[in-house]
Write a protein that binds this DNA or RNA. Structure first.
Lengths: 121, 121
DNA sequence: TGGTTAATTAACCTTATAGTTAAGTAGCAG
DNA sequence: CTGCTACTTAACTATAAGGTTAATTAACCA
């Protein structure tokens, strides 16, 4: 069950792949262009595999031009990810609300959160 | 070398864990609260493991209260992710620029991108 | 003290991921 | 046709991820 969003997050969970995306954000590049910074650390087939992961996740598009495979970013996929994360925007903008909640916590003695979890009574 | 951002993306790359985060966005919840929607599909230790992944990624914080382990979201971690993705905002807002680039492409005959990749001459 | 609830740890299994080397395909240039 | 450049595929290996069951810890309750 590899849903699209899971594939996208998984693809982003690798520093090599993220570095490739950074390079692509500066414009279209071929496989060997993208491989260049990594050929000391890994082989070309490894690079091919990383690009395949990015492609399957929809983050990049690979086209053909003679013997080259120019790659470019796919904006919509990034927007998908951004939209999901944005659901949590209120959470990270909530500092003061959370401080407020904390102050209530230290005031109350027992069961500070006011929740009773699974308690029977 | 699991850098923080990689850990965060990896933690988000699982629908069960994302569902847990959704629940936590509605407020603090204990491990068994979080487990409830999943106990038909998986065991409690599996839930514990998922929460450990979220915790190591810094996306949630687990505290202690008697025999319960209330969990809550950690806003900063989400902000980290959002900030990274936001680097690509221009890409997905670039529709018209890309249409423009495409129009140039269909006009030029040879080597449409104007790039020469690794070509010697 | 003994039992129940909440959660974790240990040991194990299966599959996926990230890498390797070696061989194969495809386009172009002499 | 030969050979170089660009890239992919195949086959294999090692480790990590996600799940299981069974046993363990820990806090509360009667």
């Amino acid at each position: 069950m590899p849903d699209t969003l899971s594939q996208r997050f998984a693809a982003l969970a690798d520093p090599t792949r993220r570095a490739m995306l950074v390079q692509l954000s500066r414009g279209q590049a071929s496989v060997s262009d993208l491989a260049k910074p990594f050929l000391k650390e890994m082989s070309l087939p490894a690079v091919t595999k990383h690009l395949k992961v990015l492609e399957k996740a929809g983050l990049i598009t690979k086209t053909r031009e003679a013997q080259w495979r120019p790659c470019q970013l796919n904006g919509e996929a990034f927007k998908d990810v951004a939209d999901w994360v944005d659901q949590y925007r209120t959470i990270w903008e909530q500092r003061f609300d959370r401080l407020d909640a904390y102050l209530k916590t230290v005031t109350a003695k027992q069961n500070p959160t006011g929740k009773n979890y699974g308690r029977k009574k």
